Amino acid sequence: MIKKFLGLLFVGLSLQLSAQDLFDVLEDEAPKTTEAVTATFKGTRIANGHSIENRKNKELEFIISHRFGRVNTGFYDLFGLDQSNIRFALEYGITDDLTAGLGRSSFEKIYDGFLKYKLVKQKTGAKSFPIAISLFGSATIKTQESFDPNFDPSFSERLAYVGQVLIARKFSPSLSLQLTPTFVHRNSVVLDADPHDIFALGFGGRVKLGKRVSLNAEYYYAFDELESLTTTNSLAFGVDIETGGHVFQIILSNSITMIEKSFITETTGNFFGGDIHLGFNISRTF
């Protein structure tokens, strides 16, 4: 009887020690640190629109963006190369999480300024978080003279504003996706029937093809439309090529403009009808 009791006690102690050893192993293997996910996209743009990426603290980036005319204009305009829209911009990392930018576009002679703040970072490890969230806000002013002699817009009437929430996730080293709810407001409109406020939803993604090359796609669906223009939704495909301090993007898009207020709500080209603009973004970081 005593031997049987001692045997059961020995078995119980062995099972307890085995369970404790298992818990110790699991505890040792559990991640104790948290790491932020980086390089969700190669640059600060997916194609026309902003990506979740910011400039690092005290980094200055110079960006040249160029869009040619429509390729379906034919040989006479050298498939759009005779026409062009260009934008120069400077972007500065105030902190790792806050970027400010200023730009000027030849289209409608628009000046734009923006702030982009990284609100939440995607994280892995002990305190993981599945997505990254940034806030984006911009203001633009159209300085082109009015073609209507009876209409001379005031400073306030030339202004427009954009607010966006950038929500992104890096699913793997090769795949990143972004969702971009967008609000556009114009202080003045061409027709009374035109909405001052337009809501849109952007979709973007990147597939990494190599160590320094990726394929990007971007689409914005506008829920409200202008009555003064026959508009279409903005669609763009691009290739990112990273070379040291440069990120070179080759882009095909039905939008000729490169600021949110314009390409999201004022695009008129049909991508699949041949209204495609060849373009590029070149950035240099200092």
Rank of each mutant, 00 (worst) to 15 (best):
I241L: 12
T230E: 12
R169P: 01
G244N: 11
I241N: 12
F171K: 00
D197I: 00
I259D: 09
S253C: 10
S262E: 09
A236P: 04
V162I: 08
D194T: 01
V247M: 14
S234H: 11
E225N: 08
Q164L: 08
K170I: 02
S228T: 07
Y220A: 00
D197A: 10
A168V: 02
N187R: 09
V184K: 03
T265N: 06
H246I: 11
G210I: 09
I250F: 15
H246K: 11
A160H: 05
T231Y: 03
L226Q: 06
V162N: 14
S176P: 02
V165A: 14
E227Q: 13
G202W: 00
T243F: 14
N254G: 08
F203R: 04
E218C: 01
R169N: 14
L166E: 03
Q164V: 09
P173S: 09
E225K: 14
A222R: 14
R169G: 12
A236R: 06
V213I: 15
K261T: 07
E260R: 06
V207K: 07
I198C: 03
L235P: 06
I256T: 14
Y161H: 12
F263T: 09
Y220Q: 01
L179G: 02
A217N: 07
S253N: 07
E227A: 14
G205S: 00
V207H: 06
L209Y: 02
E227C: 04
A168N: 05
T243G: 08
I167N: 05
V207Q: 04
Y161W: 15
N233Q: 08
E242C: 11
V190S: 12
H185D: 07
N187A: 06
P195Y: 06
P173W: 01
L166S: 05
V239Y: 03
L177Y: 01
F248Q: 06
G204Y: 00
V213C: 07
N187Y: 12
E266W: 07
I256C: 08
I167E: 03
K261M: 05
T231S: 12
L235E: 04
V189F: 05
A168D: 02
D194Y: 01
I198P: 01
F248H: 14
I256S: 13
S174F: 09
I256L: 10
Y219W: 13
G163W: 12
A168C: 10
